[in-house]
């Protein structure tokens, strides 16, 4: 459905996207995971025909994003990081305006607007100005705006950025639902590991404009652990330094790190590693409160592949919740 070949974008000599190649199958949810500034948004904007690539090509549904840009536009819906809604227009007026830009017949558009509003439980807010909506409501509006033209491909740029936990869950559920029910192909960008893990069939890890790894979430995780590494987390009431160093010195332990006063995280190999570690702790008279068998997270994957933590640069741009509403509106008439 979507194919990019060496897609590249430079801004004044700065390479934002560096020869990216990937393909997305019809009906798939594909995630671009990476810190801010990795090139996710630029990639999405190129696929949405809003930015022209400096080099390389991409096709959406067999249409070239540069040569057949208007054909591509008919196929796609874009949920941008910024909310594409006019505050002084009502929910219905907003959808009507954008719908008419797609030349949707008036009767068809009318029913579709009602359906979409119902779909995100905003039916009764139809005639209320969007400026008064909460950020969760605005984001839901932002998503259904992109669905007006019944796109085959939905491009989502950080769809849950700046939302409260409840709205985040709602939006994620909704994305899954439209993918399942409408067989819609979805590309989404995120810097949240959990989001990529929960939603995406395949994940492309993107860092410094390059795709560092591309696979399904389980496959990516296996890359870190290998087949026989397991991660345990012990909660020991009377954890001592001695205990930590004896665990560390065990043959079957790859690494052991003390997280806090009572918790220790152990990477172990081999079938009987668990028994050996338990015996060691008992021998030191440790009281084990709990044991967890941890799966490697995408964070571990990211660290393993790129050599740095996602948060290293992700922290630079933490959005204030609902920040848009406090932005001064300089509109000179």
């Amino acid at each position: 459905m979507i194919e990019t070949r060496n897609l590249t974008k430079e801004f004044n000599g700065l390479v934002a996207v560096d020869h990216i190649s990937f393909s997305v199958k019809r009906g798939e949810i594909f995630g671009l995971l990476g810190p801010n500034g990795a090139g996710k948004t630029t990639t999405i904007r190129m696929l949405a025909t809003l930015t022209r690539p400096t080099a390389g090509t991409a096709t959406v549904g067999d249409y070239d994003i540069v040569k057949d840009d208007n054909e591509v536009r008919k196929l796609i819906g874009l949920v941008s990081e910024k909310i594409i809604m006019y505050d002084r227009l009502t929910a219905k007026e907003n959808l009507w305006f954008f719908g008419r830009l797609y030349n949707i017949q008036k009767e068809v558009l009318n029913t579709r607007i009602d359906e979409l509003l119902e779909l995100v439980q905003l039916g009764k807010w139809k005639d209320v100005q969007v400026g008064t909506f909460s950020s969760g409501m605005r984001q839901r509006m932002n998503v259904i705006r992109a669905l007006l033209n019944m796109p085959e491909v939905l491009l989502l740029d950080e769809p849950t950025l700046g939302l409260d936990p409840q709205s985040t869950v709602e939006v994620r559920e909704f994305i899954k639902k439209i993918n399942r029910e409408n067989k819609m192909t979805i590309i989404l960008t995120t810097h949240m590991m959990i989001e990529a893990d929960l939603l995406c069939d395949r994940i492309g890890i993107i860092d410094h404009g390059k795709i560092a790894a591309l696979d399904t979430s389980p496959h990516l995780k296996r890359r870190v652990s290998g087949a026989d590494t397991t991660i345990f987390e012990f909660e020991i009431a009377n954890l001592t330094t001695n205990m930590v160093s004896s665990i560390q010195s065990l043959e079957c332990v790859g690494s052991a790190s003390r997280d806090n006063a009572t918790r220790i995280r152990v990477h172990a190999h081999g079938n009987n590693a668990f028994d050996i570690i338990i015996d060691t702790i008992r021998a030191e008279k440790g009281k084990i409160n709990s044991v967890k068998n941890l799966e490697p997270t995408l964070e571990d994957v990211f660290l393993h592949i790129t050599g740095h933590d996602v948060r290293d640069n992700a922290d630079q741009k933490i959005p204030m919740k609902g920040h848009r509403r406090f932005m001064p509106r300089r509109r000179v008439r």
Partner: peptide
């Protein structure tokens, strides 16, 4: 008015909504 209106929409992001329409 024209530059003010368009650059405002560009900054707020709504211009993209029009630009992705065919």
């Amino acid at each position: 008015g024209l530059p003010a209106a368009i650059s405002h929409e560009r900054e707020v992001g709504t211009l993209d909504g029009m630009m992705v329409a065919p």
